[in-house]
Design a protein around this nucleic acid. Structure first.
Lengths: 225, 225
DNA sequence: TTTAATTTTGTAAAACTTTTAAATACAAAG
DNA sequence: CTTTGTATTTAAAAGTTTTACAAAATTAAA
C-alpha cells in the first residue's frame, strides 16, 4: 500500500515511517504542507496520513485544496489536536478518519487498511497519452491509433513501441532493447528485435509512409520525431 | 440519509434516534442482532450504526455476515468497548469506523457524513443506468437487460460486468480484475476470471452476437463499445 | 437435504513469439 | 564501377504460451 505521510516533526515522522515500512507499507514522507500537497497531487497514493499543525500549509488546508482538485485519496488525520471541534473540522474538510496522538500502531494500521479496503470499482488513473505525428498512444488503456484508426498491437509489440516512445530521439542499441523489452541480459545471436521492429514499422506506418523508426547502421535504431 | 441503528439498550437507542432524527437523518432501529442483520440485508441503508454487545448476534458477527453477503453498506461501530484490540477487531471484521461511548453528537454526525460522502461519490460519479448497444444495466436495481429481455446474473457476474462497464474501452489485466472484483491481492494460479468472462459473454451475447468483451492476448480483456 | 453459485481442473484451439534462412541493402576495397 | 563481406529486412515454419470452454469438485445458501 502506497502511503504519503505528512509530518513536520522529523523524529515522529521517522518512527511512523519505520513502523509502517516494517509491516510492508510503502511510505513517502513530506516534512511540510507545501511539499505534501505537491507529492499528493503528482503521485498516486492509496492513503494519506496528515498531521494538522504543519509549517507552510496546515493539514486542514492541504486536505481542502486536494479535495478542490478532485483528488479523492483517502485522508487520515493523525494529530494531537483532540477537541471535538478539531475532529469535526477535519472530517468536514474532506478527511476520512481522525486518529489522536498518542496512538497504537496496530490501530493506525487497521484504520489505514479500512480506508484502503473501499476500493472503487473504476480504475482511477490519470490519462497517460503521447501523440506523435498522426500516432496516438494511450499507455494506460494500451490503445494505439494511427490516423484516428485503432491498430492492434500484440503485447510485445506494444512494449517495444512504448520503449521507443519513452526514449525517442535517441539511438538505442539492439542490446538495450533486448534488455529492457525482452528482459534478456545477454545476446545469444537472436534477431528478434529486428523482426519486431519490422512488425511495428508495418503496423504504425500510415498513409504518409513516415519513417518514425529509423535504422542507424552499426548502432541500432532511433525513434525520431 | 437512511441510517440503521442496532442497539439493545432501549434508552440509549431512543436518545441516539431522537438526536439524529432531529437533524434530518432517517433512522430505523433494531434492538437485537438478528433483527439488525435482517433489516440490513433487506433494506438499503446508507450507513449502519452498530453496537457490539447485542443479544442474539454480536455486532462483530453481524458485520462479518453482512460482508460475507457482499453487502458493502458502511458500518460505524458505536460501543463502550474501547481497548485497541476491540477497535482493531471491529475494523478488521469489515467495519468502517469505530467511535467510543460516551461520544459527542456532532462527532457522530461528522463521522456518519464522512462515511456517506464516500458512498455518494462512488455512486454519483457515473450514471445509474448505462445502455451499451442493446445491453441495459441498472446499477441501483442491479437489473440487466439484453434486447429488452431481463437476464439473470449472479452477484459475481454482476460485479464483473459493472467493473467492465465502468472501465470500458481500456485494456484491463486479469490481476486488476481479480483485485477489484474478487478482492484478491495476489494471484495464486487461479483462472476464475477467465471462467467468469466466459459466463458473462454467454449471458450478454445477443442476437447480433456482439463482441463487447474482447480478449487482448497477453494483456487481459477490454470492454469495447 | 437439495439447490445454486463458485472455484478448480484439464485440454483443444487460437494467438503469439522465436527461429530460420533467403533476399536485399549497404559500405569499403579493389 | 564492380566486387566482397557484413548488416538488415522479410516471409514462412516451428515452437511456445495463452485462452476458451466444458465438466467436475467444492463451497455456500435455502
Amino acid at each position: 500500500m502506497k502511503v504519503l505521510l505528512v509530518e513536520d516533526e522529523p523524529h515522529v515522522a521517522s518512527i511512523i515511517n519505520k513502523g509502517l515500512s516494517e509491516n510492508g507499507y510503502n511510505i513517502s514522507v513530506a516534512l511540510d504542507g507545501i511539499t505534501g500537497l505537491e507529492m499528493a497531487a503528482s503521485n498516486n497514493f492509496d492513503v494519506i496520513i496528515l498531521d494538522i499543525m504543519l509549517p507552510g500549509l496546515s493539514g486542514m488546508e492541504l486536505c481542502k485544496q486536494l479535495r478542490n482538485q478532485k483528488n479523492n485519496t483517502p485522508i487520515l488525520f493523525l494529530t494531537a489536536l483532540g477537541t471535538t471541534e478539531n475532529i469535526v473540522a477535519g472530517l468536514n474538510a474532506g478527511g476520512d478518519d481522525y486518529l489522536l496522538k498518542p496512538f497504537k500502531f496496530i490501530e493506525l494500521e487497521a484504520r489505514l487498511n479500512t480506508l484502503n479496503r473501499r476500493k472503487q470499482m473504476h480504475i482511477n488513473e490519470e490519462e497517460d497519452i503521447q501523440e506523435i505525428d498522426t500516432l496516438r498512444i494511450n499507455f494506460k488503456s494500451k490503445l494505439v491509433h494511427v490516423d484516428e484508426l485503432e491498430i492492434a498491437l500484440t503485447s510485445t509489440e506494444f512494449r517495444l513501441l512504448e520503449f521507443f516512445v519513452r526514449n525517442k530521439n535517441r539511438v538505442i542499441s539492439r542490446m538495450e532493447i533486448l534488455e529492457k523489452v525482452w528482459g534478456i541480459d545477454f545476446n545469444m545471436g537472436t534477431n528478434v528485435v529486428d523482426v519486431y521492429v519490422n512488425y511495428l514499422r508495418k503496423k504504425i506506418s500510415n498513409s504518409k509512409s513516415n519513417k518514425l523508426i529509423q535504422t542507424v547502421v552499426g548502432m541500432g535504431y532511433i525513434f525520431k520525431c
